[in-house]
Design a protein around this nucleic acid. Sequence first.
DNA 1: AGGGCAACCCGGACGC
DNA 2: TGCGTCCGGGTTGCCC
Length: 267
Amino acid sequence: MPELPEMETYRNLFSHNIINKPITDVEINREKSINKPVKDFISHVQGKTISSVKRRAKHLIFELNSGQNLLLHLMLGGSMFLGEDRNSPDRTKQVILSFGDLKLYFIGLRLGYLHLLTNEELEEKMTKLGPEPLSLSLEDFDKMISKKTGGLKPILVDQKFIAGIGNCYSDEIGFEAKLHPLKKAKDLTGEQRRSLYRAIKTVLKGAIDTGGYMDHPMYEGDEKTGGYNDQRLVYEREGKNCFRCGTKIERVESSTLKSFYCPSCQR
DNA sequence: AGGGCAACCCGGACGC
DNA sequence: TGCGTCCGGGTTGCCC
């Protein structure tokens, strides 16, 4: 599922392609994807321009020149495609924003949504999220993790703790830090807390640089998106050999969370 | 605070 | 091929 690096990749693309272009048409094929009556939503968005695209955790925020915002969360299975009717994926598009011939397709929105929000409404939603991992200082991280008692996996994917990390990258971070996913935060040494902090940055930055782990291209001829798929060291590699030591990768479940890890490298 | 779990939803995987 | 069934996954909210 799209996590921070995937959303950052989208943000990057959009910040070059759809800024300040008039939204000529809005098509809603799934009412549940939006938060207003279809008529109201369209009449507000149509004719406006997007003045900037920001990312917060796994959300994208399209700032409209009207002062309102479109808040996007892809949740599970959601993706976007920037292109034209002749080259767009043959899938149901829940929402389409047109910029003349260029169109932004929202695909696979099931639990995902595109909500029209005022600055105040947006602010209220965003303050519930924890800090951005890439701008978090070691001092702050150390303070936060030191207050925790639970397992590392649930802590890493908790959006109120740090926002933007999901199933895939939490496992990759655990491997990078050589820490077992169910190890309790209170049992970490100072060195292990630093190691975890560094792993968060290393893994997320590395994933952004290589295009994330998603497999849907973002535009025609897109070769970069999904480049991280080949670099996953543990996520969904159950039964395969650890690239570091050769031990078979295992999978552990606690409650509804599953984790992939190397039983030899991660303690 | 943390662990457990149900609900939300439907594309895709799987079985026949 | 086609139809039915079931599951996964991020998030929220509620329980203990």
